[in-house]
Amino acid sequence: MIATEAKPREEVLERLGDAQSVFIVGCGDCATLCQTGGEFEVEEMKKYLEQVGKKVTGSVIPDATCNVLDTARLLRKNKEAVAEADAILVLACGSGVQAVAEKAAKRVVAGCDTIFLSTQERMGQFLERCICCGECVVDQYFGICPRARCPKGQLYGPCGGYNNGKCEVNPDEDCVWALIYERARQLGYGPEYFENLQPEPTDYEKQKRPRRLVFEPRRG
């Protein structure tokens, strides 16, 4: 899922600028899990905006705001409220904001910062485990990705900066290479496995932005 953080209220207000009336779009998927764009947060934002003297013309929470067709359908369904608003405030990831912008002829304001593609460890704990490099190598590292989990993305081994198995850059994080070594050991692989590992440098051509995935969907 996509991890998001709510922008500070003052910043949202600043971005709304002179918009007097606002339509709010949340997200029923990732932003609900991150508690940045679910029902509760949309309601709280509505109260806040009204408190500072703005008019909230309406709100909607698509199942997943990044689903452009579904979001467009919901915006059409609420077209009077959308039309009445000076701006649309989107409490979702950057893809959600852009899905709304694509389908609404209105100024769109982002209420969240999108931070990473995450796993959810438990409620309220999200961790970055994948950076969408486009050439998955995680199986070579016993299911622990050094590209995503080492700040320097080192595929050949650790740098010299870890201390007691902790990362120098993020002292609260384990050095990913210490984790990889430990997992390898548990699975019966020694240093010779890594001595023989010959990774290719990352192919950044695969990360040429914007990326797109287009295929003929299987029917039925």
Partner: peptide, 19 residues
Amino acid sequence: CVVNPGADPLEPQIMKLHK
């Protein structure tokens, strides 16, 4: 190249030195 002889754990540090 460089290596950190005080790295803990040392094993992956030495593996990288060999590389």
